[in-house]
Computed example of a mutant assay.
Amino acid sequence: MMPILILAAGSSSRMRGRDKLLERVDGEPLLARQIAMAQSISHDVRVALPPAPHPRHAIAAKSGARCVIVPDADEGMGASLRTIFDTLRTEPYAMLLLADLPDISADDLRAVQNAVQDAPDALIWRGATADGQGGHPIVFHHSLFPAISKLSGDDGGRGVVQSAGTRVHLVPLQGNRARLDLDTPEDWAAWRAARQIT
């Protein structure tokens, strides 16, 4: 079974006191939604979290997902990636999912997961926008885990993706959902307004 690793240790620094992962989507906090969605396709869901105390801990613990504390979460995304990939052992693949992508669906996760069999020569299988821009979720081959475990600072793994060269298989998802994150209150207001129109 492919583990799904959810990054949820960021600070929501641009939300001016609100936590974007606690914003409600379809009646529940975004983080709870993302965990439940991941659990619908994998029994091995691990969530990178900031140090306690933090409200996200209660959501993750209630879900039954494996909580992975990132003691140096303030360092940036590199710390979260390094810490959560260090929990992997003999798994041949792992899927990385950012917690703040509210339009991603379980079908999107399945599409990227299934691409591993469809394009077996790749090292990375990556969700993309409809016009071909790489986004999330991303499945990594185990041969790339050591490089990810060495990331630091705010390095989101771009160099690891680039190192795979032509062995990156893009999986187009509907619209911009593979890249649409909501970082500010204005982003959330615009997204909610657009949902009411459609």
Rank of each mutant, 00 (worst) to 15 (best):
P3W: 01
S42R: 06
M1P: 06
G157I: 09
G10A: 14
L49W: 04
R110N: 09
K20M: 06
S42C: 06
Q113E: 14
H43R: 09
R18A: 14
H43G: 02
L49I: 03
V70H: 08
A147N: 05
G10V: 02
G78L: 03
G76Y: 14
S11K: 09
R33H: 12
L7S: 15
D154L: 01
R46P: 00
S63T: 03
A119H: 12
V112S: 11
G17P: 03
G127I: 08
P50L: 12
H43L: 07
W191L: 04
A193Q: 14
G159H: 07
A48S: 08
L31K: 08
T166Q: 15
A99D: 04
A58R: 12
A147W: 01
H141E: 13
L151R: 10
V171M: 11
E91Q: 13
P146I: 05
I59M: 01
R16T: 07
E91P: 07
D181H: 14
Y93D: 14
R14F: 14
M95F: 00
I104W: 00
E75H: 04
I41E: 07
G78C: 10
D154H: 14
S63V: 00
Y93R: 12
A190T: 02
V161A: 14
P137L: 11
G27T: 11
R192C: 06
H169I: 01
D131N: 10
P71T: 00
D108S: 06
G27M: 11
A48L: 08
R46S: 07
T90C: 05
V68M: 06
A178R: 09
W188K: 01
P102Y: 11
R56E: 03
F140N: 11
I59G: 00
T83S: 05
A52H: 12
R126G: 05
V68F: 03
I35C: 07
R16W: 00
F140T: 07
A73G: 02
G153Q: 10
R14S: 15
L97E: 12
W188D: 08
L31H: 07
G175Q: 08
A189E: 12
T90L: 03
S152H: 14
P51E: 14
S13I: 08
A94I: 03
C67W: 00
A48C: 07
S143Y: 01
T129Y: 02
R177H: 10
A79E: 13
L30E: 09
E186P: 00
S143R: 13
L22F: 05
A111F: 00
F145V: 12
P102I: 11
A111N: 05
D74H: 07
A178E: 11
D131M: 05
W125C: 09
S40P: 06
R56H: 12
S13T: 11
L7Y: 03
A99Q: 08
A38T: 04
R110Y: 04
L180E: 12
T166S: 15
D118R: 15
G78Q: 11
P55Q: 05
E186S: 14
I138C: 10
S63C: 07
V171Q: 07
M15Q: 10
G159Q: 15
A106K: 02
A48K: 02
